[in-house]
């Protein structure tokens, strides 16, 4: 078993993450009034329906697309020389320094505590139809897993294959993949919590909740 105190200390020693905001597609960039050192906020609200701080707009085919901060943090660099120019997709526009939130710290720690079921191949993954129904209706934690059950549809180059679960029985505690996005081989798809470890995991959650101070 891992040492949660040590892990928390490690994260506290370097509680930042650099986020590079890039152009989602081609277009002409206009930066918003953001300066180096300014604080920005990420999306908020129950369903993250309130957008983060506006960083820039990118115009393409007479459509303006606003680009918002995806996390809260401090602006480290605005690539102002791109102002008014046509940029390619993926061009870095703004660099942010983001202080890890409680949820993110929890996710990092849970990734060490849970049994991870990893992607065998680089592919897109979908829950198998039966599992998908349950996840959509009552959330991933309603799905109990056992060895050999049909869990995923793995899709590569539009060819699909089913993928059975292997590992300890338990519930899906965390989901790490996004719909319609590729997952690299070896990356976790889900975190599984066996029933006997549930109290321990809940203890971890409680400790992070009390010990982690979210900074602005």
């Amino acid at each position: 078993m891992f040492d949660i105190t040590q892990l928390l200390d490690e994260i506290k020693a370097s509680p930042y993450e650099e986020i590079v905001v890039t152009a989602p597609h081609t277009g002409v960039v206009t930066f918003a009034d953001v300066r180096e050192g300014a604080r920005v906020i990420g999306p908020s609200g129950t369903w993250k329906e309130k957008k983060g701080t506006l960083l820039a707009t990118i115009e393409r085919e007479r459509n303006q697309k606003p680009i918002h901060a995806v996390e809260k943090g401090e602006v480290k660099e605005v690539l102002r020389h791109l102002e008014g120019t046509f940029v390619e997709a993926g061009t870095p526009l703004v660099r942010l320094r983001h202080f890890l939130s409680k949820d993110e710290v929890l996710a990092i720690i849970l990734k060490k505590a849970l049994h991870l079921f990893v992607a065998p191949e680089r592919a897109k993954y979908y829950f198998a139809p039966d599992v998908d129904k349950k996840v959509k209706a009552s959330g991933p934690r309603s799905v109990s897993l056992h060895e050999g059950m049909d869990l995923f549809i793995m899709s590569r180059m539009k060819r699909e294959a089913s993928l059975a679960y292997s590992g300890p029985s338990g519930v899906i505690y965390a989901v790490y993949f996004q719909h319609n996005e590729n997952v690299d081989a070896g990356q976790p798809l889900i975190g599984v919590c066996p029933p006997d470890q549930l109290p321990l995991i809940e203890d971890v959650v409680a400790r992070v909740q009390t010990e982690w101070e979210e900074r602005e």
Binding site: P24, H25, N63, T91
Partner: peptide
């Protein structure tokens, strides 16, 4: 570089 070959815009 573009975001997708499927994007007409």
């Amino acid at each position: 570089r573009v975001s997708s070959y499927h994007d007409a815009n």
